[in-house]
């Protein structure tokens, strides 16, 4: 049986559950938005999840995880969710089942400049980058790159990349309040590479904004997403890089300039793949379900 740990409010949920149903494989769901319904016990060498449709007795062969995000600071909601996720993460640390993806291995994009170091060491071309809280350093970087600079968040807190425009000069003085990531602006085509085990799906994206997510999520503009191809060595490197982080699934973002320079921007360990497959038609959910089905273990220490 496949176990899905996630949130019924997550955009991935409906499509992924439909894919699990289509597969005909048995599966169980822990809906973390309904955290109080579940109990997790460990005893006699086995983990057991009960409640909310989980019986604590059916052997689990593989696990898919997309933890819920607390949408409120209300302790009555956030508290039980947090406690459930702590218990689940501890369970995932010790389960003998394959986990897609293990939360403990999925931290690298919390610090984007740290992940950039890993990408550079893996052989990817990465954009020139500055992290600073010093206004003069940001201005120098802007000057050196003749104004072709974007800025974006350093952590994985939701933020959009923006090109540095004239009106942003007045905001540079605020930098001591919060460090910011500045990067050379590589103008060109966006690619998202979804790695699933040894497979990869390349999607080319076209949007009016420098950050296509802004077009889709903030400006409510339609973006174009279509299947594409990248050089085999890029695909191979993407797969190995994902695996080197201890992940099965990864969403790598690339930008290709008009001169053919391909820069790696980041890897998302919990990509919202349904956003892409809903537009490009690429069977990413199916590939993940197939992976989970193929890699189920017979001898398990997890029951739901």
């Amino acid at each position: 049986m496949i176990l899905y740990l996630g949130s019924s409010r997550d955009r991935v949920y409906r499509r992924f559950v439909a894919e699990l149903e289509r597969s005909g494989l048995p599966f169980a769901i822990v809906d973390e938005d309904e955290a109080v319904r579940y109990t997790i016990d460990f005893g006699a060498g086995a983990w057991r999840i009960s409640g909310g449709g989980c019986e604590g007795s059916r052997p689990v062969g593989s696990v898919f995880v997309r933890h819920a995000v607390a949408r409120t600071l209300d302790p009555a909601v956030a508290g039980p969710m947090s406690r459930l996720q702590i218990a689940l993460n501890r369970m995932l640390l010790e389960t003998s089942c394959p986990v897609v993806n293990p939360p403990a291995r999925a931290y690298s994009n919390y610090s984007k400049p740290f992940q950039l170091r890993l990408l550079a060491e893996a052989g990817f071309d990465v954009p020139m980058t500055l992290i600073t809280n010093v206004p003069e350093e940001a201005l120098r970087f802007h000057h050196e790159l003749q104004g072709r600079v974007i800025f974006k968040g350093v952590s994985n807190m939701m933020s959009f990349a923006q090109t540095w425009k004239e009106e942003h000069f007045t905001r540079v003085g605020l930098l001591p309040n919060s460090p910011t990531q500045f990067q050379e602006f590589v103008e060109g085509v966006d690619y998202r590479v979804h790695v699933v085990g040894e497979e990869a799906f390349v999607t080319r994206l076209t949007a009016s904004n420098e950050d296509y997510r802004r077009s889709a999520l903030a400006d409510q503009e339609e973006i174009t997403a279509e299947p594409a191809a990248l050089a085999p060595e890029v695909i191979e490197r993407s797969i190995r890089f994902t695996q080197s982080l201890g992940l099965v699934v990864g969403g790598l973002d690339f930008k290709e300039s008009a001169t053919g320079r391909l820069v790696a921007l980041e890897l998302n360990p919990f990509p919202q793949f349904t956003f892409y497959e809903g537009r490009s038609g690429q069977p990413i959910s199916r590939a993940i379900v197939d992976y989970l089905a193929r890699h189920q273990v017979e001898e398990t220490n997890l029951y739901a």
Partner: peptide, 12 residues
């Protein structure tokens, strides 16, 4: 936001 941006920067 500032908390996470600051930690992520110093970690890097």
């Amino acid at each position: 936001f500032v908390y996470h941006e600051t930690l992520a920067s110093w970690f890097a």
